[in-house]
Amino acid sequence: MDSVNSISEAAPLRLRDLNAVLATGVREDGRKLDEYRNIDIKTNLYEKANGSAMVRIGNTVAVAGIKIARGAPFPDTPNDGVLTVSLELLPHASPDFEPGPPDEGAIEMSRVVDRGLRESKSIKYDELCIIPGKSVWIIYVDVYALDHDGNLQDAAGLAALAAVLTAKLPEVKVEGDTVTELETKRPIPIVETPVPVTVAKVGDHLLVDPSAAEEEVSSVRVTMTTIESGVVASIQKSGSDSITMEEALKIYDLAFARAKEIRGKLTAALGVSPA
């Protein structure tokens, strides 16, 4: 039912062991509790896509590709372009993932990536308008999980973000209702970098960027997407446990601090930063 986040039958025993280890301030893989794994970002991998990125967080890998098309705007936002995100957990990523329609865990993950990009309002959707009310750019972001060692949520979110930051749109010439695509290209108009950071609660401890082993025994995970100014643009609590108000604010502080570091790596790797 919930392929990514289900707690296994052996979890209580593992949890007892892990909780004791975590009290020393060091995780099984040697990281500190608030430490993110190494991130590797590669972009423009596929010539036929308008943009693409592969993000590796430790052994977790996700790839995102962008295709753009001209289409009709939504009736309630006639002057705005459209962004649509979908995500699939490929069987490549884990023996537990089956091909076929996404389960609730994959749907949630996809919608959290989507909200992180969309609700930040970091993309200037009005600049994706071609003919008001008639024609706008539709940006399709398709994300695939390739290898699962925990925190696919952030890998998927970062891959989508890196792909958006490096994608190119053709310039267009509009004469009446006729649209001609030109040879010249421009970036997708994005003015901030909304970076997702997931924090898991294992026993009494908050762990940044959980590994698969940590996720398996975590009772709750919170993903917060923050932008440069410190504004939080999306939050999702996932998992069958509760958190305190103090923990929610602690998670914000962790998410914002790590997002700042990741944003630095992202702009360095991409050689671009938001306009």
Binding site: R115, E119, S120, K121, V222, I227, S229, G230, V231, V232, A233, S234, I235, Q236, K237, S242, I243, T244, M245, A248, L249, Y252, D253, F256
Partner: peptide, 26 residues
Amino acid sequence: MPNVNRITLLQLNGRLTRAELEEGLS
């Protein structure tokens, strides 16, 4: 859960500063 004072659902769409997040939770 009002008596044990714990959050069981938390989602956000939109933009909040840290101070607004704290105010919103209260």
